[in-house]
């Protein structure tokens, strides 16, 4: 998905002022989703507090954190509207996140 303001098929297109397209409605929707997920996150450890449900708790919390971080990166940081190369720069530290999740799984299964 490309932003109408930052990309153009015609290289001469940049010679003209470009209309700014507002994303306010999208931002407000993302904000409510983030708020809702934060409330859910607080209740997950209480619901899955038993020893046997540790894996469920960990997986649910990790999935919610990944969704929240993804929404902030994609919409608030405009990654969804950026060029492919800029997105690749942003993706570079993601492997560290997966490494952390794997090591946390280790602590659950230990």
């Amino acid at each position: 998905m490309e932003h109408p303001e930052t990309t153009s098929a015609n290289p001469h297109h940049t010679a003209h002022p470009v209309e700014h397209q507002s994303h306010r409605a999208t931002y407000v929707t993302i904000f409510f989703v983030l708020g809702f997920l934060t409330v859910l996150e607080v209740f997950v450890p209480e619901v899955y507090s038993a020893e046997w449900s540790g894996t469920t708790k960990m997986l649910l919390l990790c999935i919610m954190a990944i969704i929240k971080a993804g929404l902030v990166g994609a919409f608030f940081m405009h990654l969804i509207w950026e060029s492919k190369w800029l997105r690749w720069i942003a993706y570079m530290p993601i492997y560290m996140g997966f490494a952390v999740i794997i090591i946390m799984l280790e602590s659950v299964y230990r």
Binding site: E2, H3, E5, T6, T7, S8, P11, H13, T14, P17, V18, E82, S83, K84, W85, L86
Partner: peptide, 12 residues
Amino acid sequence: DLVPEDKHFGQA
């Protein structure tokens, strides 16, 4: 004032 279009980074 606008940034020229770049092949890889668009108008970043």
